[in-house]
Amino acid sequence: MSEIISSVVAHYNYWIYIALMMIGLYAVIGKKNLIKKIIGVNIFQTAIILFYVSIGAKKGATIPIIHHGPGGGHHETTASVIEASQYMNPLPHVLMLTAIVVAVATLGVALALAIKVYNQYGTLEEDEILSRIRVR
């Protein structure tokens, strides 16, 4: 039991992202309202953004800007060895900037489509739309 607890605590970032991902997936599959489904998709994407951000983070590390490094300009006399462990990995964060842009674009397209659906059927509830299609 204590092993499970300690593994949860040690890897809490993964547990959080998986929980969020499942909430999103449930909303996409289980909810009948089209807007709720769109929100589900967005939660799903955010979970993965969290995952990426958390793998780039490091305890006690700082942003990867070499301030006093060689060629830094101001303190050339105190040029010291740069230790990679002091700096966070910026790459996953940079990747997620792109993923956020993609998520926003997806949200925009999805909402635009939802408006089109609403204009066509007068409702956003999936079962009502399906019954309207069947009647037609």
Partner: peptide
């Protein structure tokens, strides 16, 4: 008549698919 709804359903599934791929790439990167 049914195009917007079909496309919206494609948005849900397509985005989830792409997200799974992204997650896989994340593990590879890790």
């Amino acid at each position: 008549y049914r195009a917007p709804l079909a496309s919206l359903n494609y948005v849900y599934m397509g985005t989830i698919g792409a997200c799974f791929y992204l997650l896989g790439v994340g593990y590879l990167y890790m």
